[in-house]
């Protein structure tokens, strides 16, 4: 079943000025239910723009985005969030630093439940939070009252991941969520991510700089450059590829594309 569909998306920044930049050019991508797609590409390839458009932070100039066959192209971010869980690159970005762990978790519950005047951290919820944190096994279970601003980057990212996923979103968006962490922590978060996605069978779109990670994780890989998808690999192809293969593939495609431009110019 098709869960996320992007059709012929176009996005231009600073249109009509000398700084005009075509961020996304005619991009189409479909995620089936249960797909875990990793997106790689160099800086400025349009990966983050793509993710922001799926989340509703940016609206496309042209094209259509649908989730579960609902057209959500211009549905504002806060309404679309009902179906989407997100983890950001910056560990500061996904949590409220001056609120406690339990208050952050209660806030995350509001993603799918309508907010009313009931107590945010009720005793029932508190027990639930404790259980979920114990399952996550990152040593936060006994620190429910701790302000999130006092946690380390890795702990915050683990909490962000939990907050984005424990309400079982239809779609999970990960925006280089391990890039700001040291190698050991990054690996830890990567492992947790894989566990959480597998357990909840979450459909996921993950942007990363790390080609190794992109090959290890997920069942599909997408390579972007200059706002377009230039290469796709399915689970089978992905398994047989190394980072070296990916780099060669990238250069080969880009080289060919340049050659094409040259031949066009000659005509």
């Amino acid at each position: 079943m098709k869960l996320l569909q992007l059709k012929q998306i176009e996005k231009v920044f600073y249109q009509g000025t000398p700084d005009e930049k075509k961020a996304i050019q005619g991009l189409s991508l479909t995620l089936n239910e249960g797909d875990f797609v990793t997106v790689i590409g160099s800086n400025g390839a349009g990966k983050s723009t793509l993710l922001n458009m799926v989340a509703g932070v940016l609206f496309p100039d042209e094209g259509m985005i649908s989730i579960d066959d609902k057209n959500v192209t211009f549905v504002p971010e806060h309404k679309r969030a009902k179906w989407i869980g997100r983890v950001f690159q910056d560990p500061m970005a996904g949590t409220a630093p001056n609120m406690s762990i339990e208050e952050n978790l209660a806030l995350a519950l509001g993603r799918t439940n309508k907010r009313g005047l009931r107590r945010g951290v009720s005793s029932n919820r508190k027990k639930e939070f404790q259980q979920t944190l114990t399952d996550l096994n990152v040593g936060l279970a006994n620190r429910l009252h701790t302000k999130v601003g006092l946690l380390s980057g890795g702990e915050r990212q683990a909490l962000s991941l939990l907050m984005a996923t424990f309400t079982e979103p239809r779609l999970l968006l990960l925006d280089e969520h391990t890039a700001a962490l040291d190698p050991a922590r990054a690996e830890h978060i990567t492992n947790i991510t894989q566990d959480v996605i597998r357990e909840n069978n979450l459909t996921t779109l993950m942007v990363t700089h790390d080609m190794e990670q992109a090959l290890q994780m997920g069942n599909r890989l997408v390579m972007m450059d200059e706002g377009q998808i230039i290469f796709e690999a399915n689970e089978e192809e992905k398994r047989q590829m190394s980072v070296q293969d990916l780099v060669e593939k990238f250069q080969q495609i880009r080289g060919k594309a340049l050659a094409d431009d040259k031949t066009l110019l000659h005509k």
């Binding site: 989340a55 971010e77 806060h78 309404k79 969030a81 009902k82 989407i84 997100r86 500061m92 970005a93 996904g94 949590t95 409220a96 630093p97 001056n98 609120m99 208050e103 952050n104 806030l107 995350a108 509001g110 993603r111 799918t112 907050m163 984005a164």
Partner: peptide, 14 residues
């Protein structure tokens, strides 16, 4: 409270 603390994050939670 979260709106005053981290507005970007609250939007991602509906």
């Amino acid at each position: 409270r979260a709106t005053g603390d981290n507005a970007k994050m609250v939007k991602s939670f509906s």
